[in-house]
């Protein structure tokens, strides 16, 4: 039985909401049960955004992930907020381009990936979220990089082919960086 509860958090505009939808869509395409739930409303305005994603072989019970297996932290304030929630033995993926503090937990696995820097190398920092998703795929195997790549055109319906290609490159580089 497979279950992955994920929280993704960062500044509004870093693409954490769409990264979550993409993960859920990828899980669905791979035949898993999935759910996605955003933090919505007033707290979004000018502040941080986060979402919950569940990918499971079994039925998904609660869509709000209170004890995540994996947390992806895209900015500094998110580290303090979400590090304590990770399950013991769980995974914390940190965007080391923007997060300068060090995590303090010793009972979890920490993977630091310079998402903004890698994204910049690929072409634009706007796809730092894809680097982070690649890192998640590489570190957990809960979904594959190919699976996420297949989900891309379903979620970003109006994206140009060259943009999609850049996203795929970012995914692959993220996965490589996490291994």
């Amino acid at each position: 039985m497979m279950y992955q509860g994920i929280r993704i958090s960062g500044f509004g505009g870093q693409g954490v909401i769409s990264a979550g939808i993409l993960l859920a869509q990828a899980g669905l395409l791979e035949g898993k049960n999935v759910s996605w739930f955003p933090a919505y409303g007033a707290e979004m305005r000018g502040g941080t955004a986060n979402c919950s994603v569940v990918i499971a072989s079994d039925e998904v019970s609660s869509p709000v992930v209170s004890r995540p297996d994996t947390v992806i932290v895209m900015n500094e304030p998110s580290l303090a907020k979400f590090e304590p929630l990770v399950k013991p033995g769980g995974l914390l993926i940190i965007n080391s381009s923007l997060v300068k503090s060090q995590p303090t937990r010793k009972d979890i696995r920490v993977v630091a990936v310079a998402c903004n820097k890698i994204a910049e190398e690929v072409g634009t920092t706007k796809i730092a979220n894809m680097v982070a998703l690649g890192a998640f795929a590489g570190a957990t195997g809960a979904v594959s990089v190919d699976g996420i790549a297949k989900a891309l055109p379903k979620v970003f319906k109006r994206a140009k082919p060259e943009m999609l290609q850049m996203n795929v490159t970012a995914l692959k580089m993220g996965a490589a960086a996490a291994k």
């Binding site: 939808i21 859920a24 999935v34 759910s35 996605w36 739930f37 955003p38 919505y40 998904v60 869509p63």
Partner: peptide, 10 residues
């Protein structure tokens, strides 16, 4: 409720 309205599922 807000969760059922805002969440995504298949």
């Amino acid at each position: 409720d807000g969760i059922l309205g805002q969440m995504m599922e298949p």
